[in-house]
């Protein structure tokens, strides 16, 4: 580890944080719109239009967080980028295929000929599912240090399913806030089903990560760490119960036209994702390629990082500001999308 007082010591840390922030925001934001995309496979035709309308103004910008995350990996940690991307070659390709399919289907299903619409709908659902599964698979491989034994790949496949479920949970939570009537009630059903698979996935990652190496195990289970860190899993469990409780109560409340709890499943899922993300980050730090390359070994030259940092400091708050503006403009229940 380099001296933190020197720029080549602290700059990689800052960029690790920026990359983490970008990936976290991506997972939450694109998570809900990928989730809505997957759930569309279960919806009726009119519901499909509402669902697309609920993510229409946002998905482009949501996906840009992925580009920022990968951009920071590429620019701040160029030596790791090649290794990580090489190790994830096929899942990355699958994810890109999925993202391309759903991104274009989004527009084609509105603009193409009517008899093609079912096909674009399938591309939208399939693309969303493929992207979510590929991301989960990559997460699984990351946790096991890109070590492709059959059992590890099975584990990665299981995490793939769980992340897709997590995205469905986010998507269902989003629809609860954005939709009305039948669709809103169906979102509750979808959310309840996704909740348990998501929880299973988080347990899976939490169990597998400490087993990966002695160092990670000690980070969590040595004294006093175990006591200091205990609130993270405890709080996560409470949030799951809160979401489950909200799903149970919401049908009655919505029947009484009481929307005051509609945000609870989405809100608690977001916090669950944030906590899980931090737990994982804590485990993996300071490795960027687990057990092989740390962030200081992978970092770009300090003069280059400094040049980007100036941009990050000036521009990132502006991005957060106008992202908030866009969400504020399109607040409330979603309406049909109309250009004008």
């Amino acid at each position: 580890m380099s001296e933190l007082a020197q720029s080549n010591g602290w700059l990689p840390l800052v960029f690790m944080a920026v990359m983490g922030l970008a990936v976290l925001i991506y997972v939450v934001l694109d998570g809900y719109d990928l989730g809505v995309g997957i759930l569309m496979g279960l919806a009726s035709d009119t519901e499909k239009d509402t669902m697309v309308a609920s993510i229409g103004p946002f998905w482009d910008a949501n996906e840009t967080w992925l580009v920022l995350g990968i951009g920071v990996l590429l620019t701040a940690f160029p030596l790791a980028h090649g290794i990580v991307m090489g190790a994830l070659y096929l899942p990355v390709a699958a994810m890109l295929l999925g993202l391309i399919l759903r991104g274009v289907a989004f527009d084609f299903r509105f603009k193409g000929q009517a008899h093609h619409k079912p096909w674009w709908n399938r591309a939208f659902v399939g693309g969303s599912l493929l992207a979510a599964l590929a991301q989960g698979y990559m997460l699984g491989l990351l946790v096991v240090g890109f070590d492709r034994t059959p059992i590890n790949m099975l584990f990665a496949a299981f995490i793939a399913l769980c992340l897709a479920a997590g995205y469905c949970l986010l998507g269902a939570g989003w629809l609860l806030m954005k939709a009305e009537g039948d669709l809103q009630r169906r979102a509750i059903v979808w959310g309840r089903r996704a909740l348990w698979l998501t929880a299973l996935g988080i347990v899976g990652v939490s169990v597998a990560t400490p087993l990966m190496s002695r160092a990670i195990f000690d980070k969590w289970f040595s004294v006093p760490n175990i006591f200091l860190l205990a609130p993270i899993p405890a709080f996560t469990a409470i949030l799951f119960l809160l979401a489950a409780f909200a799903f149970k109560r919401l049908p009655v409340r919505l029947e009484q036209r009481n929307e005051s709890w509609a945000w609870v499943p989405f809100g608690s899922t977001v916090v669950i994702f944030v906590l899980a993300f931090h737990g994982l980050a804590y485990s993996l730090f300071p490795w960027i390629v687990p057990q092989r390359m740390d962030i200081w070994q992978a970092a770009a030259a300090p003069e280059s990082l400094m040049f980007i940092l100036i941009g990050v400091i000036i521009v990132l708050p502006a991005i957060l500001g106008y992202t908030a503006f866009a969400y504020w403009v399109f607040r409330g229940k979603s309406r049909d999308l109309e250009y004008g």
Binding site: P57, A300, Y322
Partner: peptide, 26 residues
């Protein structure tokens, strides 16, 4: 790296975020 990072930071977010307002803001 930095040139690509600046592209993402100054351009991609700007266009992608305001695209929503431009298309559906009426």
């Amino acid at each position: 790296g930095p040139l690509l990072a600046y592209e993402v930071l100054t351009a991609f977010f700007l266009e992608a975020t305001f695209l929503g307002v431009m298309l559906f803001g009426t």
